[in-house]
Design a protein around this nucleic acid. Structure first.
Lengths: 339, 339
DNA sequence: CTGAAAGCGCTTACAG
DNA sequence: CTGAAAGCGCTTACAG
């Protein structure tokens, strides 16, 4: 089937190209009769507008790029789903890319995004590539960052209060009587990792608990590493009475290790995690969570995106920090303190 | 920051536009010195090619559209992740859209896809919109369908053998001694729904089991409806000894209902599901599954996509049907048959 | 090895 | 209400 262009439609309908343009864009004056004729030709020929040509001319692409770390991450995709709804409702569509927390991949993706002339970028950044992201901003493309800060550049930002969440989680375990707490954290290379780590550490110090450094394990946000770290904790001579996992992916590894050791969650070891409620809904016993406000984040990001896309003038970057909420399940036990 | 085009680079480097084009595309003869000059200008000005203009000229967009039913569905996103890897490796990038199993939405998405001049379409179709999908094919865009057939049009197709999977699942329950089996199926509006339904029904008939129509419940592939249907089954005067759930989303509803009734999976009622292993990994007791071959599907789809994208001539549509495998967990109990 | 020129498919003032 | 024409930013033969 030969490619059919606006010219073909014009010829078929016996009008000019400009007139066809007016009908497909539904703007400018077009006579009723002409309209009908053109519509008929469009149908008959199976014409659809070439978005590339249109974008080139109008320098508006109607595309929003969403760049996230992992496409198969349930939490991130819940947010992406919210975004897609908004993006569509605003008359745009979504380009989805992922970077797997690899800065090189992120850079390559950002390059593509630049080339695609997108109208906005929503990103779960690695934290790096500040220069490139700065360039994108200077080109007039709004950048909305979710969950993490980009180093060395200010962007719109929506995230939960990682430090607060971690701090409160430890406080909660302390309240239940725990004094030896294992912490499985990601790393300290980006804001989310640093803040969740620091919140936990500060709470442990402030509450005068065992500052046993062997209880604090880095697991790079990976399930496999969290599994190994948890194993180490469980098999150590003086294991913790509770384990705090700083992220969803790592929590899988933690739970696997506990099960594999034949331990009962809560009874033998308390487990609490920073995470997404929906994702852990069917786990038994119900997981105690510092619950990420997925819905709120999605909504706030959508509002911000809408404002950016529709704003006639620029406005200062917004930083929206949302406090997560502790949702107790049945995975943490009260410990009687021997004095 | 003013938009910088190839012209600006040309002027800055003191060469022609054509020469700049050669260096950014890395083709044709360019003198060493010129090359260096141009590169420097590109860097200095922060130039990046306008993909819209490029596509317009070359009528190749380097875009692959992936249209799925639900962005936050873990199973689908696992496949999408595989696809993204391939797409990137082939030098393309991915546009992701979703249709929520709504034919109107699917049609709108297909329209966008057509306008975007994508080089290929990977789709989890609703089953409808055969006409539009036919049009897309006639425009020379390869269409690769996953998991479901498109009605009234032949496309490349990769799916598991839904009928076989359902049939074998019932056979397995029969083998364990179950004679009253509840079936929660999606609907019969598309191929996946019909085939999974029919496989179960045929097995029940063939094995001479209770053909009690009140045991067979339609739940529209929705968690909420599966929950209600399961409740009905559990509360009926003569409840089934086992329930077969035809899909991941519905399985959530089934499990919730069982728990809410205070019943123990396996001991009180056996549960088996058509589904994705990774998704149910942490559920206790381990769910018995007719396991979807996610990996295989992803790989086969990737290979097919690669062939379509790189083929110099057309070839006949491929239909790849993969047999799912029964993976017993601990969610089904052996029943002693009273005779 | 380099440049000038045509043209991809559209939109947008502008003239009528 | 309609059409002719310029031009968006590129690539691609072609000539030199």
């Amino acid at each position: 089937m030969k490619k059919v262009t606006i010219k073909d439609v014009a010829k078929d309908a016996g009008v000019s190209v400009g007139t066809v343009s007016k009908v497909i864009n539904n703007k400018g004056y077009v006579g009723k009769e002409t309209l009908v004729k053109v519509m008929a030709s469009i149908d008959r020929l199976g014409y659809s507008v070439n978005a590339n040509a249109r974008s080139l001319k109008s320098s508006k692409s109607n595309k929003v790029a969403v760049l996230i770390s992992d496409i198969s991450n349930f939490y991130l995709m819940s947010i992406a789903k919210e975004m897609e709804k908004t993006i569509r409702a605003l008359g745009y569509h979504m380009i989805l890319l992922s970077h797997n927390d690899d800065e090189q991949l992120e850079l390559a993706s950002l390059q593509i995004i630049l080339e695609q002339q997108v109208d906005a970028l929503v990103i779960i950044p690695t934290g790096g590539n500040g220069e490139m992201i700065g360039l994108i901003k200077r080109k007039g493309i709004p950048v909305i960052s979710i969950d993490r800060k980009v180093d060395d550049v200010v962007t719109d930002l929506i995230m939960d209060d990682h430090y607060y969440g971690s701090f409160e989680t430890i406080k909660y375990l302390h309240l239940l009587g725990h004094r030896r707490i294992g912490v499985i954290y990601g790393h300290r290379q980006n804001s989310i990792g640093r803040e969740r780590y620091q919140g936990a550490i500060d709470a442990i110090k402030q509450l005068n608990m065992d500052e046993d450094s062997t209880l604090i394990k880095e697991a790079n946000f990976k399930e496999e590493q969290a599994y190994r770290s948890t194993m180490e904790l469980l098999l150590s001579p003086k294991p913790p009475t509770a384990i705090y996992s700083c992220n969803n992916t790592m929590t899988k590894g933690v739970l696997k290790a506990v099960r594999e050791q034949g331990l009962r969650v809560a009874k033998d070891v308390s487990i609490i995690a920073f995470g997404d409620k929906a994702q852990w809904e069917l786990i038994t016993p119900a997981l105690s969570l510092m619950a990420q406000p997925v819905k709120r984040i999605g909504i706030e990001a959508s509002i911000l995106l809408k404002n950016r896309l529709e704003a006639h003038e620029e406005f200062a970057e917004k930083q929206i920090i949302i406090k997560p909420e502790l949702v107790p399940g049945n995975s943490c036990q009260t410990i009687t303190i021997r004095s």
